[in-house]
């Protein structure tokens, strides 16, 4: 494209954008948006008690004795309020719950131990 044509296109784009109601998103706005999301996430995770991963692990082990659950379907979060904090444990179980046969001996042993005490 020749120089004058380029110039013409640039100028007309300028004229059209003048009338456009919503200007293109400016990069500073994107920076702010991205940061806000990121900081909110990072502040939450850095404030969480350090035992959460271990707790998640232990809970998974207990549940795995009874039903097959997907690791990804277990969510453990702490919500902090000004007066009280809440430990939120969310476990999504499969639609058809089936006791795990392989774990049956373990269950019996548990039952036995419970009866003995």
């Amino acid at each position: 494209m020749s120089h004058w044509a380029e110039e013409w296109v640039r100028k007309s784009v300028g004229i059209f954008s003048f009338f456009r109601t919503s200007p293109p998103q400016r990069s500073a706005d994107q920076a702010k948006e991205r940061l806000q999301v990121l900081l909110a996430l990072e502040r939450n995770s850095s404030n969480a008690p350090s035992f959460l991963p271990q707790l998640q692990d232990d809970i998974l082990k207990v549940i795995a004795k009874y039903v097959q659950v997907d690791n990804e379907k277990v969510l453990i979060e702490v919500e902090r309020g000004p007066d009280v904090s809440m430990l939120d444990i969310n476990i999504e179980l499969p639609a058809t719950m089936e006791a795990k046969r392989t774990k049956a001996p373990a269950r019996r042993r548990l039952a036995g131990a419970a009866a003995a005490t």
């Binding site: 400016r26 500073a28 706005d29």
Partner: peptide, 16 residues
Amino acid sequence: RVKRGEMLKVDDVLEM
């Protein structure tokens, strides 16, 4: 650059 929307404003940084 702030005026042109290329850089975070003071208020944006303060808010965060």
